[in-house]
Structures are given as structure tokens and as C-alpha cells.
Design a protein around this nucleic acid. Structure first.
Lengths: 184, 184
DNA sequence: AATTTTATGTCAACACATTGTCTTTTATTT
DNA sequence: AAATAAAAGACAATGTGTTGACATAAAATT
């Protein structure tokens, strides 16, 4: 009884399954289902990347940037910083993406009127027209990508992804509880 | 009655909602829910990437490669080609990833005995030991990433992702129905 | 058997993603 | 007001991802 300290973290769901006499094949799945889920997300993201380029003609980041800038209420731009947070990419990465979008005259950066450090990112007229011209392709892509999904299933998947994203995001928080004094 | 040809593709689910007198807010969601889903997948994948590096100390591809090679039954290696298909990455990309894993002596490539063009990829002893040493971190990562998921919810999300991946994969097929004669 | 086609993997160029470093501007402290 | 700290974003180095071009080996054709 005294030597049970260092066993793998007890898992109530596993214990419950054991109590019910569920065969060990199914129990092993508790570890492996997580493994499969994370791997599936990796694969799905790779496919999304490929298919977006193939069907829409844009990389997923570019599609996300143009989509973000074309939203109602962002006609006067969004701050660089806000955009990195919305897309969940590093400032350094976004910088490069914006450089190429500026080169193609789809996007421009202007200095923020209230803070000379900051930048406002906004669509050019050409960029807006380009985005509009993509809409048919994009909607067709959505339709095909969800061809075998009912409306309810789509909503369910979205719900679970939202939830999963929150769990994933929360991990980093736990790591740096004493971030304030770490500099000393 | 004669001028209704070119309206947006009829959607039976939308029509059904209209029949039920569902308010138009909810109907607009039919387009936007797809938009949100695709964007969510983009975001979730970005977070997964970041957190994997942070928590496990590997990029998602490296984690996937080592995981693939450490599977039971692959002690003698897996062909380069099979590995690209399993991971859904391009041959050219995998080549670079393997180069760096070889540099770190975690993986090695040998010429396939039955086909001098092909390569077998396999874990080195160091690579296998490294992978084993990662297991606690990885399981902790899985546990935290699914902290608020019941077993059933995890299975549901996995199910929907599988389904979504199939739909996404199917798109490319439709594009190239006459791929055979295209060379002429 | 010789030729052509296809399969496999590598190299090169570029886009996308990370961290680390730096400058400039703003905010805070003294 | 001067000094210090923090925030914003641009630059560099490296890893990850794409397509295009290529060499070599195997398969198919003639």
C-alpha cells in the first residue's frame, strides 16, 4: 500500500471502465484516443492547407488575413498587434506575410495616429476587390469541404473545436505563474 | 417563374429553415458557420503547433515522424513514400525534416533492399530512447489539452474530425477526373 | 534488348512559422 | 525633467511547408 505513489496519474474514467469490466482493448484506447485526436488535427490541418491553396489559390494565412480585414467595422484597419492575436501567429511571422501582401498591393500598413510605434493594417481597393472576387470559390470550397455534414453536425464540430482550443490555450497559462519576478 | 435560374445554389437545409419561419439571423449562420469552422481549424492548428513546441519540445512534424516510426510493427522501418502519405506532407518537405532528424541522430535512412530507388526510414537507438523519454511529457500534454473533455466528447470530436478530413480529401479527386489523358 | 514512361527521392527557390535581437516610441519611476 | 522599463514592430537565423526541376532506378512498351 505504501508503494503506489509514483504510478501514472489516476484517471477516474479509466477506473470506472475497469469497474464495469470493459475489455482492455477499449481501455488502452483512453490513451490512444488522445493520441489519435492530436494526430488527426495535425493531418486535417495539413490537408486544409493544401486544399485551400488548390481550391482558393491562397495560403491559409493569407486567406485569414484578408478575411479579417474585410470584416465589417474594420474598414479603417486593425492594429498589427490585434491581428497577431486574432490569427494566433507571431508578430514576426505576420510581418513577413504582410510584406508579401503589400508587395501584391492587397494590403497596406499605416502608422497608428495615436501611437507612432503601432501600425494599422488595412485592405487596399485592389485587395478588397480581389477578396470579393474570391467569394464564389470560397463558398464552393466550404460547401465541398462539408459535403457530408448536416447543419447540426457542423455546429457540433465547431463547438468541440472551440472547446478544444480553449483547453489548449489554457496550458501555457499554468506554466508561467511566477512570470513577474523571473527577470531577477 | 422563368427567371429563377441564377439564384445562389439552392440549399435544402436553408429552404427547410425558411419554411419553419426561422429568423434570418439564424439563416445567415449557415454560411458563416462554415467560415467559422474553417477559421477555427486554422487557429486550433496554430495553437497546437505552439503548445507542442512549448510543452513537448518538438515541432508537430517531428513529433508525428517519431510517433510513426515508434509504432509496433515498424521496427524495420517504413518507406519514405508511405511516410509522406501517412503524415500528409510533401516528399520535399519530409526530406528536409528527415535531414534534421538525421543530423540529430534520431533517425536514419537506408536503401530499400527490393528497390534501389526507395528508402526505408527508421529510428536509431538514440531516437528510440529519446522518444521513450518524451512519453511522460506527451501524456501530460494530452491530459491538459483535453482537461475539460469527457471520454465521450473526445471520441465525438475525433469522429467529426475524421469525417471532415474525408470530405476535405475528396475535393481534389473531383478536380482531376480526366487526369489520365492530360499529357497529350 | 532498346526505348520510353513512370516512380522515387533529392536539390533549389520561395512562402510561412518559430525564437532571438534590435530600434523606436510610449509609459513609468525617480 | 531624466532615467528606466515596457510595448510595438522590423531584421536575422533557422525550421517547416509548398512547387518545380532533376537524376536514377524500375516498369512498360516496342
Amino acid at each position: 500500500m505504501t508503494n503506489l505513489i509514483a504510478t501514472e496519474r489516476p484517471d477516474s474514467r479509466l477506473a470506472a471502465l475497469l469497474d464495469k469490466g470493459v475489455p482492455s482493448m477499449a481501455i488502452q484506447d483512453d490513451k490512444s484516443v488522445a493520441n489519435r485526436l492530436f494526430f488527426r488535427l495535425f493531418q486535417a490541418s495539413n490537408i486544409l492547407q493544401k486544399q485551400t491553396v488548390g481550391q482558393v489559390g491562397l495560403s491559409t494565412v493569407q486567406w485569414a488575413v484578408l478575411g479579417a480585414l474585410s470584416r465589417k467595422g474594420y474598414e479603417d484597419g486593425i492594429s498589427f498587434n490585434q491581428l497577431t492575436e486574432y490569427l494566433i501567429v507571431s508578430r514576426q511571422n505576420l510581418d513577413g506575410v504582410l510584406k508579401r501582401l503589400e508587395r501584391d498591393d492587397h494590403v497596406k500598413r499605416i502608422t497608428h495616429p495615436d501611437d507612432k510605434r503601432a501600425r494599422l493594417i488595412l485592405l487596399t481597393d485592389k485587395g478588397r476587390a480581389f477578396w470579393e472576387s474570391l467569394q464564389p470559390k470560397i463558398h464552393e470550397f466550404y460547401a465541398q469541404g462539408l459535403a457530408n455534414f448536416t447543419f447540426d453536425e457542423t455546429v457540433s464540430l465547431l463547438h468541440y473545436l472551440n472547446k478544444f482550443q480553449k483547453d489548449l490555450e489554457a496550458i501555457a497559462m499554468r506554466d508561467a505563474p511566477t512570470a513577474e519576478h523571473e527577470k531577477s
